[in-house]
Amino acid sequence: MSTKTKNEQSVYVYEVPIRLWHWINALAITVLAITGYLIGSPLSSLSGEAYEHFLMGYIRFAHFAAGYVFVIGFIGRIYWAFVGNSHAKQIFLPPIFSGKFWSEVWHEMKWYLFIAKEPKKYVGHNPMAIIFMHVMLVWGTFFMIFTGLALYGEGAGFDSWQYSWFSSWIIPLFGQSQDVHTFHHLGMWVILIFVMMHVYVAFREDIMSRQTLISTMISGWRTFKDNRKD
């Protein structure tokens, strides 16, 4: 399938579930961040009778719906880490005991600090991306899911599974409900900052690195711009 020309070789990197998850996830996060922000700081009041409106209700509903998409998507993504190709595991298991990995991280850092002239070539993610994705996105997602479900359990009530699996221990762990809100809210900013950097880097590397990025996340194929090793 791949068209291997002299300086253009392609590898199939991201399987369908990964790509599907990536874009659904991106959409879910967008909805969650917008609705979440509005839960914390609601829009201006509507006038009239209460029964005529359900604005806050819809905003919260959208948040919860996107929240469940986010949760289920993530569960699917974890499943795919087991059954998918080797790249599917990368963001979950950064090879932190490998010296080579860290030297590559170091190289990437130099590349971003304009010290290295050229980035290396990677079939999967570059090592810096792995670190970032692992810490901010994977753990950030866990955190948002756990705190989000803990908050959800409060509304669902003592008898709900969300309450007994999450709220019952997460709320005391943080101190009280309000602290869970605060940290859930802070978590949003962690993820948003990740997204900012991630999207910037995706465009930048798409232009400046030696491989394709954005089209890879769409088609699954990684195309290299040169055929030098490394």
Partner: peptide, 11 residues
């Protein structure tokens, strides 16, 4: 709570 869901707040 009805006013909360409706998005009607004391400002």
């Amino acid at each position: 709570r009805g006013h909360f869901d409706a998005g009607q707040f004391v400002e």
